[in-house]
């Protein structure tokens, strides 16, 4: 009810000028882009933001040469198992983390440059039937994997040379974990969403499962993107890939939900609905959250951007004759938005 009362009125139309085109990058070798991202890279005493593109069999690192011009620095070829996604690792440098697999993630690898051997390398971090993975601050990686009998949730501490220093097992919930998000400002707190549409909270230091809180039946298959604690409440940004359009609130792509971890009760704080469009079935496909900004690819082939705290769509990149948008990712540090097409074209926007 609270959420419904606070449901925002959609603006007359999103302001496209809030996204400013900066540059284009074209991966000519890539016939089917699967992911794009950014990584901090230090070379010759200079630390800069570089772009990483991934197609099924290769991951490429791009450096800015001149304004609007990108050059491929290196390509890691991963021919045995297809690349599924790039896993952002906050506050790392010279390190790219990727998930590989067929239908689901089978292994996680680190791609890195070794100054000792002056060569680009890759190393295996984890194998299994991996359902969800997240990179955390301080060189940590958490993943959930399933066997026929049980679910394993594990945190791996990564070393700068691409190895694993330490492993901590976290108590698994009964339901399969579908996504993780670190609780900003609380180094030892982690949240996850489950296949049963609950939000769970862990203590990363002890591995304890602290709380399981149901999200509600209105928005099934919620995926957590971001979490922070304020005034005793746990605020979680969720996306709803399976939400149905309703008359009262449209089709919610993202919601901010406040949980009271003491009681397990929750209240919707803000909806971010799909922007007005033609009256045909439109859905959220996949998205990314940075700070208070959400971006998502829609089934129409457009990318929409929202101010999640105001529940307002602030920009739309329509699909154009060159092709539908397939990927939308925020650059590290809020440096802008990357929008990618399957043909390997990536556009960078300032937001």
């Amino acid at each position: 009810d609270v959420a419904e009362q606070l449901s925002p009125v959609l603006p007359a139309g999103p302001r496209e000028e809030s996204l400013q085109f900066v540059s284009e990058l074209k991966d000519a070798w890539c016939s089917c882009a699967v992911d794009v991202g950014t990584v901090w890279w230090a070379a010759a005493g200079c630390r800069e933001l570089r772009v990483v593109t991934a197609c099924e069999s290769a991951v490429s690192l791009w450096e800015p040469l001149a304004p609007g011009c990108w050059a491929r620095v290196y390509t890691w070829h991963l021919r045995e198992i297809p690349v599924i996604q790039i896993i952002p690792l906050p506050d790392t440098c010279n390190l790219v983390c990727v998930a590989l697999g067929e239908l689901e993630i089978g292994e996680i690898r680190l791609l890195l440059y070794s100054s000792e051997t002056d060569s680009f390398e890759h190393s295996l971090v984890k194998t299994g039937n991996i359902k969800a993975v997240v990179g955390l601050k301080d060189w940590r990686l958490v993943s959930s994997s399933r066997t026929m009998q049980e679910q394993q949730v594990e945190m791996v501490s990564l070393s700068e040379t691409g190895g694993s220093k330490d492993r901590q097992t976290l108590m698994p919930p009964e339901e399969t974990v579908t996504a993780f998000a670190e609780v900003e400002g609380m180094r030892e707190a982690l949240v996850g969403t489950t296949a049963g549409n609950s939000v769970v909270v862990w203590n990363l230091k002890t591995g304890q499962l602290l709380r399981k809180m149901h999200v509600g039946y209105s928005y099934p298959a919620s995926i957590c993107h971001r979490a922070y604690s304020d005034s005793g409440l746990l605020f979680v940004v969720l996306s709803h890939p399976h939400a149905k359009e309703s008359e009262s609130c449209g089709s919610p792509a993202f919601r901010v939900v406040a949980f009271n971890p003491r009681t397990g009760r929750s209240a919707g704080v803000m909806f971010s609905c799909l922007p007005p469009g033609p009256p045909c079935p439109r859905r959220y496909l996949e998205g990314d959250v940075w700070d208070t900004a959400g971006a998502a690819v829609l089934t129409s082939g457009a990318v929409a951007v929202w101010d999640l705290l105001r529940g307002r769509c602030t920009a739309v990149l329509p699909p154009d004759p060159a092709g539908h948008w397939a990927l939308a990712r925020w650059a590290a540090g809020g440096a802008g938005l990357l929008a990618g097409r399957r043909n390997g074209t990536v556009h960078l926007y300032r937001y």
Binding site: E188, Q208, S229, G232, L233, L234, N260, P261, R262, A267
Partner: peptide
């Protein structure tokens, strides 16, 4: 969100739940 909707709120929820949860 009011306290009546969400129940009693604690600023130290993480420490309290860690002390109460099974190890």
């Amino acid at each position: 969100c009011s306290e009546s909707d969400l129940g009693p709120i604690s600023l130290n929820w993480f420490e309290e739940l860690s002390a109460e949860a099974p190890p």
